[in-house]
Structure formats: C-alpha cells, structure tokens
Design a protein around this nucleic acid. Structure first.
Lengths: 334, 334
DNA sequence: CAGATTTCCGGGAGCGCTTCCAGCCAGAAT
DNA sequence: ATTCTGGCTGGAAGCGCTCCCGGAAATCTG
C-alpha cells in the first residue's frame, strides 16, 4: 500500500524532455506537436504508466465527465421496479462508447433531494437525466436554474419540459384498444393508471380516442396505481358496474394480471368471454394465465435515447423531443 | 442561460471582508475563526448563494466524494435482475446520510471494464463496491493494484477477498433442508446453482451438510443456472432419476418456480406428495401455486452493509467481513 | 504590567491539469 | 539575402479550493 501515487503530467514531460504544455497536447491529441516530441511523450507515458488525473482535468476544463440519472420519488421502493434497471442498461450501453460515467441518484427524501440539488449547484455533473418526477417537484425549478443540460424520461404531469424522451403512451393505448375492437368487442372498459401521472393520463386518452374513432362509447373506467392489487380491485368494480363487459384494456401489465385473476375467479373465460390487453410487456406478461397480450415499449431504448440526447446537449447541440414507438405483442389473452 | 457562474470562495471572502483562508475555515467548520468573522462569512454565503465547487475541493483534498458500484459480468442483462435494484436501494439509503454519491458501473464488455479500471487508476472515485465478479476477472488484480478501498458483495469463486459482505448461503440452505427433514421427508433432492458461483456452491454444501447431519444421504442433485427454465429442466431430470422423491430444495426461487410447474404437470401434489423450498424470497415466491416456502435474505441489508464497510475503509478504519443471516419464510409449498 | 500563551488571521504554496500567448526556427516566397 | 509565413515550443496564468505557517492580536499568568 506504500506509494500508490500516480505519476503526474510534469513527470511525464520531464522524462520526455519536453514542456508540460507539449505533453498535454499529445494527450489531448491537439495539433502543433512534432512527431519526435509526440513519440517521446508517448514512450514516457507508457513507461511511467501515466494516466491523467480525472479531478485535475475536470477542474481545468470545467467538465466532470459524469452525468447523473435521478429518480426523484417519495417511495424509495419505486426504484425496485425492473423498469429502472432496464433504463440503466440502456443508458450504460450508450455511455460505454464515451468517456462519461453514470452517477445514480435516488432522491426519495428531503435530504436526498437536497443532496441532489447540491450536486447540480456545485457542478458535480455535466448533465442530468430525470425520471419519475412529481408535479410539484422543486427539482424542476432547480434544474432550470442551474442551466445544466437536462433530459426528462417520460414527462412530468402538467408541464412540457424542453427536452424529453417518452414512449408513445397514447398511441400504444390506441393500438391496444383498436385490437380489442378488431376482435369484435364493443363493451370495452379500461383500468386506467393514475391520472396525475402523464403516462396514466395519456393511456387513458388513447383508449378514449380509439373508442370514439370506432364509433363506440367508452364503456367504463376505473383508476389504479399500476399494481396488481389495484388491478384486481378495479376489475371487481368494473364487473360490478358492467357485468356484460367483453374487453379490458389495462394501463399496466401488473394491473392486467390482477384483472385476469379476478376474471377467472368470476368464472369469465379469457379471451372467450372477455379479452384483455395490458401495457408494458414486462416479464409477468408471459407468466399470466393465459399469457397476456400487451403493448410493448422498449425501456432500454428509452434509456439510450435519453443518453444520446443528453450527450448532444452537453456538446452544445440542440435537440427536439423524442417519442418512442410502441407495438402490440399478441399472446393468449386477446 | 446567461451567466450561471457560481460565486467563488474568493468572492465570498471579499464580500465578508476576510481572507479566503478564513472563509474556507468557516465552511469547513475548522477552529480558529472569530464569531464576528464567522457571521460575516455566513452572511456573505447566504447573500451570494455560494456553494463550494465540488471539483476544486476534490482536487485539493484528493477525495472525490464518489464511490463506485461495479457490476462486472459478461451478460449486460444480468443487471436487470431485481437483485441489483435492491442492492442499490440499500446502498443509497446509507449514502443518503453522507456526502458521498454513487457512481454505477456496468462493466459487461472489454471496453466497459477498461473504462472502469481507468476510473480507478485516475482516482475518479474514493472507493468501490464489486458485485458478480467472475473468477478470473482482471478487475480483481487491478483493484488490488490501485490500493483503493474495495468491498465485495458476495464472494468471487475460489478467492477470499479481504473485505466482503455476503449472505449466509450455506446456513440458509441448511435451514431449508432441515425444514424439509422436519416435515418428515427423507428423499430430498436439490436443484443446485452453478458450482462456479460461490453462492451456488455454498447452498449446495449447506444442503449436503444438513442431510448428513440428519443421518440422511443426499438423494440427488442437478445443477441449473438459477433461471426458471433451468429449474424446470432440472426437475424433469430429477423426477426421471428419482421418481420417489418427496422433497426438493431449489437454490433459487426462480428454479423452484420452474420445478413447481413441472411437478404439477407430472401430477405430483405440492406439498402433499413433494415439499419444495426455494431460496431468495423474490416476489415470484408469493405468486407461485402454491406460494413458495423459501429462504429470505435481505438484499437491501447487503447493500447497506457493503456501503458502511466501504465508508469505514475510506475513513482509514479496518473491518472484518460480514455474513448476513438468512431466515426461513414458510408458505404453502413446504 | 511584563511575559507566556493562546486564538485569530491572511499570505502563499500547492493539488494536476488546460490553454493562452509570445517567441522561436524552419522553409517558402520575393 | 530578406521578409513572411506557419507549425512548434515552453512559460505562465489560470480552474477553485485546502492548509501550512509566520505574524498580529487577544487572553491568560503571576
């Protein structure tokens, strides 16, 4: 553990017999350095095992080489949702080809959020990707204030951020509903998501649009918080209110799974009596009975696009929002 | 977007009418500063909205205030396992009370790994937590070379790192097996994990120990890669070889779920004919038919303990490895 | 009240890198 | 031979902070 000190640029320069500036130039592939000097420096670097100190470079360039992914939400367990793991896989795959690293910030408490705002204000990162932002999250304001490049994943409710990547929630819901309609169903209800989440609202809207465009009346809707339990409860209510329903569009696979359970307990056959379509195409969709027809959105792609957009912003380019397409995955339930 | 420049310490000092050193002292709560000066500086800080620049401080103190969590594995999808999300929740909960931030590094390719070693060599982080390390992972070597504080989550196979946190896999497996034995089962087989994962080996060992200590002979074992499909395949093989088996210990819940499916297809009643115990206590354990009796390990606790240990190491303290307890969760399957 | 502490203060030297700039020396053009 | 390019080069000034250290001031001794 003795002297792990890394060699410095000065030492490299001295060994190569050039000035520090010259050495710096060859490291940064800057012009104005003779082949001889370049070679000498490169040899010195090799011999010394030199690597530029990240922090020093960051201070000089005003660039940290780090981007943050913030999941700001009151429930710390939210992050346990496989959704975020997929986002991260996508983000990482893009970052892998850059010199940027990923800082992960779960800001679920007041303390956590203040740490995050501190990080931004102290210029601890070059840019930030935000997810699961609530409506009144003060972070929105702060991110704006700092002027740091910021990309939203999904849109926070009631505001349209300048830069964001989102799935085509409304389009996906239309896809799902149209599929049910195509099956000849007419008494189609929806288990909607929370209306104060942008995705929930958009999926509900897509359902309504599809119904109306087909000349049908939206047949019934109950909201749930995207969980299996909520889906089950909603399904019970809907069966009560509309015993003759023949189609269900659930705004999440988890809710669809709960609905499936309730339908089966109520003696309805799926898809014969009631056809069901979910949303998300999570792993659970393959394990329900019957397997769930659902709307697929590529969450990795979401992560990738967010990252690409952020990198562009950091590089000073401008970008327009990106809406990612969704597609229907047909399985047994519809 | 005009001039987002944050005020510097110099400006604070000037405004407060003191020297930069004095200002620095009040910020770092160092002694030797008069109440008057302190108050003046604090007012100036408030008025200017000053926050110390992270990078500059890092350069001066040689501490970045960032710790890394590295998941080094060839399969990028491995990270999608909810396991890691739980670890991260645990890690974050501890970091929340510190000034440290979390850098997440998915090193699944050669390029990814070299980025990671670079990060370490360039002193981009103050310490690192390593998970899912393969046996011959060059990272092991590099981490040792850099002399950076490093904590392992789980143990890599065939080596015993100096600092690690691990679940009591062998103990948990004993618990599970003893439970089956306590139920009167004697022809107990195991669906073991991969023997080149430390957890797989330990769980298999625990099973054997419990059997032998009870005077029983290990009745049969087939290895699987922890997935549901592998569990199903293994169960088929085991039923073939030992049609009279009456107990199954599966080294993961996913494998247990696969086994359950196969058993039911084969007409065996669970737990009447065959009792089944899993390991991990994942969400899936509650959704199998019947619900799965399994061994619970707190993955969040794993993340928390790793983080605490790393923080201690960074502070220059020494620590001994931590083995986290497991407990049996009794549900319907055994 | 002189002398010995203690406390407080600011100057200045880093931390390791980038980058501006003025000076240099080829070789090309006149 | 003289001027003019224009690619090299190294000195030096940062980036914003910490922290050592010598001196000034305030406090405590007897």
């Amino acid at each position: 553990m003795a002297d792990r000190r890394q060699p410095t640029l000065d030492e490299v320069a001295e060994r190569a017999g050039v000035s520090r500036s010259a050495a710096s130039r060859v490291i940064n592939r800057a012009p104005h350095v003779s082949p001889a000097a370049r070679e000498a420096v490169e040899r010195a670097i090799k011999e010394l095992g030199y690597l530029p100190n990240r922090t020093a470079r960051a201070l000089a360039t005003q660039q940290t080489g780090i981007v943050a992914l913030a999941v700001s939400h009151d429930d710390p367990q939210l992050f346990a949702d496989p959704f975020y793991a997929q986002v991260i896989v996508g983000v990482s795959s893009v970052l892998e080809d850059t010199d940027l690293h990923l800082l992960l910030c779960l800001a679920s408490s007041v303390r956590g959020r203040s740490r995050l705002t501190n990080l931004l204000r102290t210029r601890g990162v070059d840019g930030i990707m935000l997810m699961a932002m609530g409506a009144g999250d003060p972070l929105n304001q702060i991110v704006g204030d700092t002027g740091l490049p910021a990309v939203y994943g999904g849109r926070p409710p009631h505001v349209e951020p300048q830069y964001y990547v989102d799935s085509d929630n409304a389009g996906g819901a239309r896809l799902a509903t149209e599929h049910l309609i195509g099956l000849g169903r007419t008494r189609i209800v929806t288990i909607a998501g929370l209306p104060d989440s942008q995705a929930g609202e958009a999926r509900h809207r897509g359902y309504r649009e599809a119904m109306i465009m087909a000349g049908l009346t939206p047949y019934g809707a109950v909201e749930g918080d995207f969980t299996e339990a909520a889906g089950a409860a909603a399904m019970k209510t809907l069966l009560d209110r509309h015993p003759d329903l023949d189609g269900v569009f659930a705004a999440s696979d988890n809710m669809a799974a709960g609905a499936l359970r309730v339908l089966s307990a109520a003696g309805r056959r799926v898809p014969a009596d009631v056809a069901v379509v979910g949303f998300d195409n999570l792993g659970i969709a393959q394990r329900t009975e019957p397997p769930l027809t659902t709307v697929h959105q590529s969450i990795q792609a979401l992560g990738q696009e967010m990252t690409r957009m952020l990198i562009a912003l950091i590089a000073g380019q401008d970008r327009t929002p990106v809406i990612l397409p969704t597609r229907l995955v047909r399985r047994g339930s519809a």
